[in-house]
């Protein structure tokens, strides 16, 4: 069953077609990497998946529901690319705030926060204001807030940015753990090696169009290919767009 569905989605800003007839599905329990150069339309697509903006045409569905409806977003855990959090809040206050927005009880918030603070490696920093956090620490609290309400679907925008090698490994393991628990994950990234390591599927976006999508096994092909090669080939293929690998 497809948890994330985009069907012929078009989004235009003035004369610019940010997303052009984009279609792809993500099945339950799969990790999908959403790749593309800057300006390819990844962020616009993510904004539509979160219901921030509506497509001009086509359908965007999360668990067959419209993400623009608030209650649908209870199933979504979102982590923004840059840590857009309130700097005057302490780490546990931020989690308490987001937990409250998700309708969690005080007890649920306390239990999940404690577990996630440990899981993302922020033990001892929970009582510090976020303005004193490093970029990596902010990414970690971002991960914690996305996982806080135990959603079905994770939409992660450049989740590996700013993480040190150890944190990357921890985060990668965390995503694989969530996958095992049946969670569906879509993340955008420039980190092709990370995508190759953990993704079941990848979608490569260029000028708002999906120019390639398939499993990571298909990327590997006969063993002579890797995601980086495919990615570069797809981005370079202006004349013969969509050419077979």
């Amino acid at each position: 069953m497809s948890v994330i569905q985009l069907e012929n989605v078009v989004k235009t800003f003035g004369a610019v077609k940010a997303v052009n007839e984009l279609s792809f599905h993500v099945k339950r329990g799969e990790i999908t990497g959403f790749l593309g150069a800057n300006g390819a339309g990844k962020t616009t697509t993510m904004k539509m998946l979160l219901g921030f903006i509506k497509p001009d045409s086509g359908r965007v569905l999360i668990n067959e529901k419209d993400p623009a409806v608030a209650v649908t977003r209870k199933q979504i855990g979102y982590m923004p690319e840059i840590a857009y959090y309130y700097p005057y809040l302490k780490a546990y206050e931020l989690l308490r705030f987001y937990g409250g927005l998700c309708g969690m009880t005080k007890k649920e918030i306390a239990v999940r926060s404690k577990m996630l603070i440990t899981k993302v490696g922020l033990t001892g920093a929970e009582n510090r204001e976020l303005k004193t956090f490093s970029k990596g620490m902010l990414q970690r609290i971002g991960i914690a807030q996305a996982l806080l309400h135990n959603p079905d679907v994770y939409i992660l925008d450049e989740p590996f940015t700013g993480l040190d090698p150890l944190a990357r490994i921890q985060f990668r393991d965390l995503l694989l753990e969530e996958k095992k628990a049946g969670k569906t994950i879509l993340f955008s990234s420039h980190e092709l090696s990370e995508a190759e390591l953990i993704c079941d599927n990848v979608v490569i976006l260029k000028e708002g169009k999906a120019v390639w999508s398939g499993t990571t096994a298909e990327v590997a092909g006969d063993g002579t290919q890797n995601l980086e090669r495919v990615f570069l080939k797809m981005l370079a293929a202006d004349a013969n767009e969509g050419e077979a690998i």
């Binding site: 608030a70 209870k74 840059i82 857009y84 309130y86 998700c102 309708g103």
Partner: peptide
Amino acid sequence: EKRTIYPLLAKPVGRGV
């Protein structure tokens, strides 16, 4: 300005709320 509106609106909260 600080873009805190993104994670805020990504939660199951309506704009009216």
